[in-house]
Design a protein around this nucleic acid. Sequence first.
DNA 1: CTGAAAGCGCTTACAG
DNA 2: CTGAAAGCGCTTACAG
Lengths: 352, 352
Amino acid sequence: MSLRSKTDPSPHGLTKGKAATINDIARLSGVSKKTVSRIINNSPLVRKDTREKVEALMREVGYTPDPLARGLAFRRSFLIGMVYDNPTAQYIVDMQYGALDALRGSSFELVVHPCDSRSPGYIDGVRRFVQQQKLHGVILVPRASEDQALVDMLDEIGCRFTRIASLPLDETSQMVVTHDRDGAAEAADYLLSLGHRDIALVTGPSAYRSAHERTAGFIDALAKRGIELPPARIVEAGYTFESGVAAAEKLLLGKQRPTAIFTGNDEMAAGIYKVALRAGINIPRQLSIIGYDDSPLASRLWPSLTSVRRHTRDTGRTAAAMLIQPDGQAVMQHASVRPHLIVRDSCQPPED
Amino acid sequence: MSLRSKTDPSPHGLTKGKAATINDIARLSGVSKKTVSRIINNSPLVRKDTREKVEALMREVGYTPDPLARGLAFRRSFLIGMVYDNPTAQYIVDMQYGALDALRGSSFELVVHPCDSRSPGYIDGVRRFVQQQKLHGVILVPRASEDQALVDMLDEIGCRFTRIASLPLDETSQMVVTHDRDGAAEAADYLLSLGHRDIALVTGPSAYRSAHERTAGFIDALAKRGIELPPARIVEAGYTFESGVAAAEKLLLGKQRPTAIFTGNDEMAAGIYKVALRAGINIPRQLSIIGYDDSPLASRLWPSLTSVRRHTRDTGRTAAAMLIQPDGQAVMQHASVRPHLIVRDSCQPPED
DNA sequence: CTGAAAGCGCTTACAG
DNA sequence: CTGAAAGCGCTTACAG
């Protein structure tokens, strides 16, 4: 009803195929361009009846301001960049969905920028991306979000950004904090409540803050209940399936194996499954396993994997929402998304 | 060396913090704006030495034309949209990576638009996306790419697009054809070569062309070797893990089970695994399985799954490359990406 | 609360 | 092969 299709008559003398411009709106409603512009930009300096009259006309002709023209005048586009250096497809897609949730109905669109934080030129690549497109802001996804050099560069060129990370990294920049420590603690408490005492931990690479947080959360929760993890029960791996296989071979093929294992993500848990299945170790009867991510893989494995859910879509939505808040508005500096454990079929009390 | 950083002196009298514009380049090289514009746009109507002189200056000051200004003047942005209605995260991410491969170094960026082709307003949503952002073009990913109503809308508003599909859908629009029929045929040939004769097929939903193509390719290849699939050996499922479980229950829990199953994607194959493992059916000794997609899941399952690889990243790269070819240039109408079988551990000759 | 002028950084249409 | 003028659709800076 509000969209002017090419079969509509043009009661206002608008050319058929062409979209209306600010000039059309100004002329047809008898106000100046500047007043229309104020309405587009939600300026309070417009009389209520003027605003309503003009807005009605905009709806009627299906007018939307041209983001290219606005961007040129503002010296800033209506694009939000998402910068990530993460191999997990589901995580990235969920993050994109979340950001798009927040952008829907706004004038903003999402432009994606995967990168490789180990390659030397990657910061320059992000800089070019931001400056050339005059991005309105960028969402930094782990592990890129943890790189202080990247953040410094963005500060230097005056680009706004939101960092997503497992813990608050600083006070000044906007952040969405995912509290990985709590998720890991919940996993520990659950294993303890089932009666496990000989527990092992397969961590992500120490260069990742998330790996560090999950490890600390898990160890601290055990310590609170008087359980200390011996060094031989902690294996550092690389967040990959293959590294999970290698870790499992260390933990499961010796004489004394643990009754339960917590892994820093689901990929590594799948590696544990592979080794256990191959060795004829029954999950969960002889070995309980908890992963982290609640990825689709968790329910595809058999038996289905108990795992910590991250609410990635909410995280992405919050990050994008913080970025497109009007400048003047009171901006919350830090937002939180809390993980929680999804119980499936991969754990049970230990055999005695 | 070529990028002007803020610590550089400004030998040309350019203001420090500000990026150079076309006017700066014109003034400093002693030519008109228009000539600079011709160089930016690769016009042949520029003398070689003029071009070289101006290009050297551009490099020296780190000039890149403003896509917002170019977009406004061209009435078309430098954004490529990716429109998809597909739940498989890895597939989408690979497609995005591929498109970005082709866009790298160009002036174009990728903006993503997931949608739900079952919701009534989705075509209007794509239309607004295209028109508001004045997109340079869009990449249509299956199943959205198969929707003729969507394609008609894009034709009507004059938006260029590339369709990705399992077979050539028409002659007029640009396409990247993935030949799913061939991939399924290769799976059939492989099972036959192992000696299987009692084979079952779990298909995707008939609304998907890919499901239809894979089914046809598989059945035809069997027929060529004199094997006809009885109706009871063909189960339609929904491309999901859960539908794979349901299909497996029909096929595996009766008295006479097949010695091999080909599934329309890996998700459904994972469902077969679950049922087989639960029922104590050994893969591959008692049951051979082949999936389609070669998703990460294929190597995560145990035993690892033999599957048809789709070369999704190549597909995305080709689709984007077709879209950003200069208008005048001879444009190839159809491009092809061929699937092929990745053999892992989920098949062996049938027991007798 | 409202508006006329100038400008954002490019390209198009025309002229030479 | 090159250029001066006008315009793309908005906003900023200033004035009232």
